[in-house]
């Protein structure tokens, strides 16, 4: 049981690392949104599932409710994250930022 928890937690941290490194390395605003919006979402899903599993170790009604609340956060983030990403990309488009194409210098 502990092994599953640790495995999921480390996988989530790996995706979080990819998100942070991607935000630093990608060349422009639009391509930075790819790691930021979605690697973070999957990392949050994996790590929160592992924490909800760990929370069920000492089983009781209160622990079950807490784990369900953690899963509620996951559901909420899965609904909210694409909307937030779309709002940011919309702000960029309306402000008139041109997308980076191959051959330009990085911004």
């Amino acid at each position: 049981m502990d092994i599953v928890v640790i495995l999921f937690l480390f996988a989530g941290l790996l995706f979080f690392t990819g998100g942070a490194v991607g935000i630093l390395r990608f060349p422009d605003f639009y391509s930075r949104l790819h790691p930021a919006g979605k690697l973070d979402t999957l990392g949050l899903l994996l790590s929160l599932i592992s924490l909800a599993l760990f929370n069920l170790h000492h089983f009781s009604l209160g622990a079950l409710l807490t784990s369900l609340k953690i899963l509620l956060i996951v559901v909420f983030v899965f609904l909210a994250s694409p909307t937030a990403t779309h709002a940011i990309v919309d702000a960029g488009v309306r402000a008139g930022l041109a997308p980076w194409t191959k051959g330009d210098e990085r911004r």
């Binding site: 989530g12 979080f16 998100g19 942070a20 490194v21 935000i23 630093l24 605003f29 930075r32 949104l33 930021a36 919006g37 973070d40 979402t41 990392g43 949050l44 790590s47 929160l48 924490l51 956060i73 983030v77 994250s81 937030a84 940011i88 702000a91 960029g92 402000a95 930022l97 911004r107």
Partner: peptide, 29 residues
């Protein structure tokens, strides 16, 4: 801290918003 770099030095306002959003999702965990 790595994401905060983008939030502080990001060349445009929207870049800063990406950094802040990334920090927020990590804070939840």
């Amino acid at each position: 801290l790595l994401s905060l770099y983008r939030g502080v030095f990001g060349p445009t306002v929207v870049d800063r918003m990406i950094g802040v959003n990334a920090i927020g999702s990590k804070t939840t965990v």
